[in-house]
Design a protein around this nucleic acid. Sequence first.
DNA 1: CGGAGTTGATGAAAGGTTTCAAAAGTGGTC
DNA 2: GACCACTTTTGAAACCTTTCATCAACTCCG
Lengths: 356, 356
Amino acid sequence: MSVDDALPEQTRRRRADKGHTAGVKAVAAAAGVSLGTVSNVLNRPEMVSPLTRAKVEAAMASLGFVRNESARQLRAGSSRILAYLMLDAGNPFFTDVAKGVEEAAQAAGLSVFLCNSNEDVDREADYLDLLEQQRVQGILITPVDQNSSRLRKLPSRGTPVVVVDRALDDAEHCSVAVNDVLGGELAITHLLELGHELIAFVGGPNTIGQVVDRRDGARSALEKNERSAKALIELTTGALTVAEGRGAGQRLAGLPVDRRPSAVFCANDLLALGLLQQCVSMGLRVPEDVAIVGYDDIEFAAAAAVPLTSVRQPRQLLGRTAAELLLDESSNPDHEHQRVTFTPELVVRTSTRGAI
Amino acid sequence: MSVDDALPEQTRRRRADKGHTAGVKAVAAAAGVSLGTVSNVLNRPEMVSPLTRAKVEAAMASLGFVRNESARQLRAGSSRILAYLMLDAGNPFFTDVAKGVEEAAQAAGLSVFLCNSNEDVDREADYLDLLEQQRVQGILITPVDQNSSRLRKLPSRGTPVVVVDRALDDAEHCSVAVNDVLGGELAITHLLELGHELIAFVGGPNTIGQVVDRRDGARSALEKNERSAKALIELTTGALTVAEGRGAGQRLAGLPVDRRPSAVFCANDLLALGLLQQCVSMGLRVPEDVAIVGYDDIEFAAAAAVPLTSVRQPRQLLGRTAAELLLDESSNPDHEHQRVTFTPELVVRTSTRGAI
DNA sequence: CGGAGTTGATGAAAGGTTTCAAAAGTGGTC
DNA sequence: GACCACTTTTGAAACCTTTCATCAACTCCG
């Protein structure tokens, strides 16, 4: 007693001990009803008399009852949660996709947990395990590693998967993507039309499918225009980040003028923004000395030092569609796996255009 | 039989039915050991003989055993997951904070679920309920609504809470913040030193504490410099987004020249970037016609059309510290609630400086 | 007043994992 | 061959919720 008096913080601490939370049983006892009735108040309130309901609700309030979701899920077999495992939470492109996912999930009464693999294969694998063990309703993922055996096994074990911004050749899940090859073609075709002869491609690592496709699109555009493959210089980066973009900018600016490309196509806008910043700070003029095309058309592309020409993707729509496919898969017994492909669009701005 | 033959997709569908997943019981049966032994293989592998372990592991692999995290948590009482409920996942500031959180969590062997309240009070409340019901280890939150009764109740019920980028007057949890009042003062003092007489403050809504503090800092700087309160024109926005920033830009540019502020202090960088973009597109020169100061110093601020002067916060450190406090709270019985405050720093760039 | 029908409340069982005290097995020693 | 110390395995109990068949009470009608 005197101890409690002397140490109020300890009281607080004790209160925070785990395991003290009241469960349905305690509520039932307090309200003087049975277990089942409490459960009915929670799940089928209309079939319990107003009087009883009031008693139970009062008991819940006074005991600070919090439903135990684990127990609930255990019984139910699956949760009301859906997860989006992002490639890079720091890239506005993916947070826009996430916004679309949230939109669709909310409309269906589900919640979304976002996870960030940060382009790290191990992190991705860990999260996949975790989410499967959590028995989430389904997983939306923009994979780092498209050959992940973990990923392939999920659907057959009961966790639906929808691949976002990528199309796997696997038939076990839906996917929603944008035609990245076409996007690459658009970018390079635009630069060729402007008269550029030597072009750099900045992107990497090559484990990322988007990078590969966009590069393939770039090459194919060269071919279609009957240019040599040597017209494309490849600068490989370790990730698709602003910092890597700056690094690439430095390498670019370091080239002797006669071998320096007059235009650069970056695998995403973060790279492009970093590259742009570095070029400007090293005295190269954009677009006079170097023209730059980005990819994604994130909100910041238009607000850049030199507004960025970029290949636009329907970001939010991508997320919304993916979530809808997932919901269909987990609720509709006649679900057929689909591969939805959207078409990108080139948005031309100052970074490739002479004038203001 | 013939039906199965004719419709291979249906087979696939059936396989994806829920409830078929093998549990410890099935594994035990398949390996010819008891339930407890399987559990030992999972949790204390060193105390089961290599031979038995091999048998069990083989059985797990062949049955595709996936641990049921719900059941696990139910027994254990809490999970190995920690959640960060963000104010706006589209704002790079918060994703940087999240990165710090993930860093600290990973070091401690925990996983992080990110949730996005999107500045919506109801969404925030829903997520808080959900996370509490999930019995997460703890919740990191940048609150929309600092008076949320839900939020206040959490710690006493056993879910530790750390408030990020905000300090509540409540004594029931730790908080990690940056001195926003000081940040506001830094910004305005800088503008006054440059000779600006009429300054606009752009930010809102006023339910967001950061906005209020930064505005208060702005006012206090005026006072300290013996200027009239009228020297600060307030343009209130509905959210801290690029779009709202553009709107504010439009309102600003619409003012008659003699009543138009020569400088603007924006409550965050997104507003500043939007405002900057709008001003430029409406023919105002920055910084000649309008000087702009942002807040947060996100990576994109430096890459903007006109590199942005901004108040820098230690973003990642903020997240890391918050997560560490949370971990301490849930593991250390002698934990004392702390209120950590970092100091912001003004980064001057072209948007407030005459020359290049 | 008896029986049918309706409404509301009950409580046991199930769901998958972990824990722990107890049992079984192993090897060595006197 | 009995006993001891030690390692390994066992199985029942507990965690909390939901479901569902069953029961009780009440209303209405003949």
